[in-house]
Amino acid sequence: MNARQWAGAVRWYLRELTGEAEYDRYCERRRRHHPLAPVPTRREYEVLRTLHRETHPQGRCC
């Protein structure tokens, strides 16, 4: 594995870890399924995500 591949793997991991990739996937899905609807900003997305978590709690054992 060369330095470029290693850096790409680290970048991918950090984006997955921080949730940045999740927002990008959401934007792609939103554009694909609702092409005329505006895409929320990252801040708006985080607010929507937090509201959804609060209204739809999931119990976890671990």
Rank of each mutant, 00 (worst) to 15 (best):
E46D: 11
L48P: 07
V39S: 12
L36S: 11
H33V: 10
T50A: 13
H56G: 11
L48T: 05
R29H: 13
P35H: 02
A37C: 05
R43P: 00
Y26T: 01
R49I: 05
P38L: 08
A37R: 11
R31D: 01
R53M: 13
A37P: 01
Q58K: 14
L51G: 08
G59T: 09
R31G: 05
P35K: 06
V39K: 02
T41S: 15
V39H: 02
P38E: 10
T41D: 07
V47P: 01
R49H: 14
Y45G: 03
Y45P: 04
V39W: 05
R31W: 04
P40Q: 00
R29E: 11
H52A: 15
P40T: 00
H56K: 05
R32L: 07
E28L: 12
Y45R: 04
R30T: 04
L51Y: 06
E44Y: 03
R53I: 03
R49S: 14
R42K: 13
A37D: 06
R53T: 05
Y45D: 06
V47L: 15
V39T: 12
T50N: 10
R31M: 09
A37H: 06
H52Y: 08
V47M: 08
C27Y: 02
R31Y: 02
T41Q: 00
H33S: 12
Y45S: 06
C27N: 01
P40M: 07
T55K: 11
